[in-house]
Simulated assay, not measured.
Amino acid sequence: MHPDTHLALHLAHVADLRADADAYRLAAAARHPHRLRTRLGWALVEVGLRLTAAPRTAAAC
């Protein structure tokens, strides 16, 4: 294969990969707030459960 043809095919492939990566990155950024809200909600549930749990007494040594 001629080097110029090989380079042109390589650059086209790189452009396709970058376009796919950009689309994936934008889609991931769009769903990020929902994931953060879910994690925060579960963290608050865990804190609430720890606050309502009966305190454990220290074991005698």
Rank of each mutant, 00 (worst) to 15 (best):
R39W: 10
G41E: 11
A19V: 09
H2Q: 13
A15C: 04
A60S: 09
L11E: 04
A29R: 13
W42L: 15
A53M: 08
R37E: 13
D22H: 01
C61G: 14
V14I: 10
L40H: 03
A8E: 10
A29M: 14
A54L: 12
W42K: 15
H2P: 02
V45W: 02
R18H: 10
R25M: 07
A58T: 04
P55N: 03
H2C: 10
D16E: 14
H2V: 06
A19E: 07
R31E: 10
G41D: 11
P33G: 06
A29T: 12
R35C: 13
A15H: 07
A60I: 07
H34P: 07
A54Q: 03
L49N: 05
G41R: 13
A60V: 01
W42N: 14
Y24G: 11
D4S: 04
A28C: 09
D22Q: 00
A28D: 09
L44R: 08
L26W: 11
A28I: 04
R56I: 06
L36G: 13
A53P: 01
H34N: 14
D16F: 12
R25F: 02
G48A: 01
L44C: 00
R56C: 04
P3Q: 03
R18P: 07
R56W: 02
D16V: 03
A21G: 02
A54T: 08
T57I: 10
T52E: 05
R50W: 01
V14W: 09
C61D: 11
R39T: 10
M1H: 00
L44P: 06
H34Y: 15
H6C: 12
H32Y: 15
H10P: 03
A28K: 09
R31F: 04
A12P: 03
T38G: 09
H6Y: 13
A27F: 06
E46V: 11
P33T: 02
L51H: 04
V47R: 02
H34A: 15
E46G: 12
A28H: 08
T52V: 10
G41V: 08
P33C: 00
L49V: 06
A60K: 08
D20N: 10
H13G: 12
D20M: 08
H32L: 15
A53V: 07
M1D: 08
H34E: 15
H13F: 14
H6A: 14
V47M: 07
